[in-house]
Design a protein around this nucleic acid. Sequence first.
RNA 1: GCGCCCAUAGCUCAAUUGGAUAGAGUAUCGGCCUCCGAAGCCGAGGGUUGUGGGUUCAAAUCCCGCUGGGCGCACCA
Length: 587
Amino acid sequence: MRNIQQLLTERLQAILPEADREFGIVQSCQDSKFGDYQASTAMVLGKRDRKPPRELAEKLIAGLELSDLCERPEIAGAGFINFRLKPEFAVRELGAESLFAGPAGKPQNARIAEKPPAESRKIVIDFSSPNIAKPMHVGHIRSTILGDALARIHRFLGNEVIADNHLGDWGTQFGKLLYGYSHFLDDAALAADPLGELERLYKVANDLCEKDESVLDACRKELALLQRGNPDRLELWKTFTTVSWQAFTKIYDRLGVTFDEHLGESFYNDQLEEVISELKLKKIAEESEGALCIFFREIASLNDKPFLIQKKDGAALYATTDLATLKYRIKRWNPDEIIYVTDGRQQLHFQQLFTAAERWLAGVDWAPARRPKLSHVWFGSILGEDKRPLKTRTGDPIRLSDLLDEAEARAYLLVNEKNPDLSQDERKGIARAVGIGAVKYADLAQDRVRDYVFDWSKLLAFKGNTAPYLLYAVVRIESIYRKDRTLNSELRTQNTLSLKELEEIDLAKAILKFPEVVQASADDHRPHHLCFYLYNLAEKFSGFYENCPVLQSSGAIRESRLALCQKTAEVMRQGLYLLGIETVERM
RNA sequence: GCGCCCAUAGCUCAAUUGGAUAGAGUAUCGGCCUCCGAAGCCGAGGGUUGUGGGUUCAAAUCCCGCUGGGCGCACCA
């Protein structure tokens, strides 16, 4: 599929002087009564050159060659240039056998078009990053789902993605955990729910530390032993990580999330010293109050906020590991961009990290001339109905596995109600897809920077901007196919479109917008644009579905409508795939 | 004290990053199943975009000042 917005922009920019090209951007119209696309070029240039915008617009239109794409552009308002696509153009554009490269009907790894290698960017996406020895809870869901969606979107656009799970598998918490493990272990509990037991042991030790200084000392000693490589402690630590990774894998499998790497903090342990000495040598870091830190004296907002690299006892910190990780990623992958998907509370940290990295990379010989763009993609918190961070009644964080269980259970009840005749296996499968899809969609459909209120009834409402509504649109199309016994599937994919009714044209034009929306979602790391688009597409399909009978019509119209259904389903499936949401045939 | 973020219909959220008359869902009211899945569709009401200024052809969006809420700031990650 081609990006129509880009196509129009290129046409417009082609007739502008080099220096004015930045003003030649064509945008989608908010209101279809003005057209499908619009440009405000004439108003901007008219203002600058003190010329009447409408006259300028007239000149621009005269120079444009667009007859293959749209009707003659119209001038409206203060000088808008409005473009309206020709239905014949949509017919041609959608006439391809399959809208996406890759196996027909299977969105998985499809591309909009193969990018030439020179244009393909290499992007490391750092996301999910749960802590070892703790069950994943709702706090991890946004990073996991958002990061995965961004990975899928970038791959679809032809970029090379390295999905890297930066596990929290090292740090001071392991002293307490080791202490708890050796004093209070419940073997039966460990066998039944390993992560739950490890979490309990940590809590027991942590509580004791607050009351008893001697326990805290004991924990410090355990930590020191681990860090010095004591074989027993190291063995236990490995057990912790193995058990944890197994539990995480279960969750990732349920969510359909995959990684290319999962290099935890421990992986960078032996690289920290080198980073510290480099920073010292280049005089980027300096000693202060016994610790080693980086100051940003010339930046007003960071002036009084030092970035700590090393504690006075010599231990490294979060910042140190992040810098070492950056170095490793540059040396191993030399990426064009590194995206960190974390919650918004870490904004200061990443501001400091990026600023420090800039100085550091400018002074070392291993850094490439073209340094990676560093992006912090942050998100708000998930709140309960009381507008406080989402917790269980007892105040503990909600386990992700429990949340997913509940989503599936609730969806299962609804499937039973609606489709009791399906086999239990099928109902379970649908409940899984719908339940998990609903949780994911509720998260992705919202602008990530805002906190969002978690609400089961809204999530699984099956109407409005929800996963079930979108899945339902696909199900209706599937249902049409099942009932269509006169045509085989090959005929559907042929170029048999003829767009007459308003609803047909609207739907076809909505389909054409898919590439530009995916691009926009990637550009500002905001998949909710794609969600909103799919919702709009589903609404357009509903309008078509109500007003344009498919199976009841006949001849060329019937074929055309079946083909339109096919194209709609293709885009819906592909779009949902990019969000990490499975589609179903019945629900 | 310094800094970051948020504020849009009763409620939950959009607004293609400065574009045209601020849109959906929900809730309320009213229509539509001898017709492809009614988990749906159509219609009605609902707004000084927290507030006061400013910038310009154009501001929910950018700048400054307030108010209210969330969060972060030296040895946790």
